[in-house]
Simulated assay, not measured.
Amino acid sequence: MSDFSIIEVRPAKERDAQAIAQIQASAAQAAFKAQFPGETMPEFDSLKKSQAYWREAIEFGDPQVLVAVMDGEVVGFVGFDRSRDPKTPATMGEIWALYARPSHWGQGAGLALWDGAREGLMEEGCTKVTAWVPLGYERALRFFDMAGFKREMTSIKTVQLGLTRIEEIRFKRDLN
């Protein structure tokens, strides 16, 4: 594992949007291949569309976006804000997205990004946080387990990803 001191976490800048879109696409592809070996990857939004989404999110802070930088390269990002789930209190935050380049998995970027998001959510007055994680994405499930999140077994829902239906589970934890 890499030394955590070499990972810088900072607010994303508009120029980071392209790297963020590429990281999301490559990490999602790697996770999908692990879950569905031999199956064709479902169609995702184009990189251009994803890049535009993240550029707008960075510009307007919805969600807030932090990036992890190692040796001058953006290697991961986290998007976080208030929960998007209906009927949740204003003190409920959500990790909207948390991705690292597959080449940097296991090197501490995810943990550094989670720490940054937790601090940001607490500054916003949040006391709890959730994250939706696809069942079968073992690396992500282990990450949230190790970060102290608890699985809400009654929350499982099915979402459409291209032509593929994937079940997701909500994770939840206190921020303090």
Results as ranks from 00 to 15, higher is better:
Leu161Pro: 01
Gly76Pro: 07
Met122Ala: 15
Ile156Cys: 06
Lys48Pro: 06
Trp96Leu: 08
Gln22Thr: 07
Arg165Trp: 09
Gln29His: 11
Glu8Asp: 08
Glu123Cys: 13
Arg82Met: 11
Arg118Leu: 04
Ala30Phe: 04
Ala57Asp: 02
Glu39Gly: 06
Phe144Val: 07
Thr40Leu: 09
Ala57Gln: 02
Ala100Arg: 04
Pro102Glu: 11
Met153Ala: 12
Val69Lys: 01
Ala140Lys: 02
Ile7Asn: 00
Val75Trp: 00
Asp62Ser: 08
Trp96Gly: 03
Ala100Val: 13
Ala140Ile: 01
Met92Trp: 13
Gln35Pro: 10
Ala140Asn: 06
Arg173Trp: 05
Trp54Ala: 01
Ile169Met: 12
Arg165Asp: 10
Val67Ala: 05
Ala17Leu: 02
Glu43Lys: 15
Leu98Asp: 00
Phe44Cys: 08
Glu59Val: 09
Val159Trp: 10
Ser103Val: 11
Gln160Tyr: 05
Glu138Val: 14
Gln24Val: 02
Asp3Arg: 05
Pro86Tyr: 10
Asp71His: 14
Gln29Ser: 10
Arg15Leu: 14
Leu141Gly: 07
Gln22Arg: 07
Gly93Ile: 00
Gly120Lys: 08
Gln107His: 15
Val78Asp: 00
Lys172Asn: 06
Ala21Trp: 01
Gly106His: 12
Arg151Tyr: 02
Ala112Leu: 07
Glu43Asp: 15
Glu167Thr: 08
Phe36Glu: 03
Ile23Trp: 00
Trp114Arg: 03
Arg15Cys: 15
Ala140Leu: 03
Thr88Ile: 05
Trp105Phe: 15
Gly136Asp: 10
Glu59Gln: 14
Ala97Phe: 04
Arg165Asn: 14
Ile169Arg: 08
Gln64Phe: 04
Ala34Lys: 15
Glu8Lys: 09
Phe144Asn: 02
Phe149Leu: 05
Ser2Gly: 11
Asn176Met: 13
Lys172Asp: 04
Gln29Asp: 11
Asp71Met: 11
Gly76Arg: 01
Ser2Asn: 14
Ala147Pro: 09
Phe32Asp: 00
Glu8Gln: 09
Phe80Ile: 08
Val75Glu: 01
Met153Asn: 13
Met146Asp: 15
Val129Lys: 01
Arg101Trp: 06
Gly38Val: 05
Gln35Tyr: 13
Ser103Gln: 14
Pro63Met: 03
Thr127Ser: 10
Met92Lys: 14
Glu43Asn: 15
Ser46Met: 08
Val129Met: 03
Val67Leu: 06
Ile7Gly: 00
Pro37Ile: 10
Val9Trp: 04
Met1Trp: 06
Leu66Val: 08
Asn176Glu: 15
Ala147Glu: 13
Val78Lys: 00
Glu94Asp: 14
Thr158Leu: 04
Gly120Ser: 12
Gly79Cys: 07
Phe144Gly: 01
Ala12Met: 07
Arg173Lys: 12
Ile23His: 01
Ala52Arg: 06
Gln18Arg: 13
Phe80Lys: 05
Arg10Pro: 10
Asn176Pro: 14
Asp62Cys: 04
Glu94Ile: 10
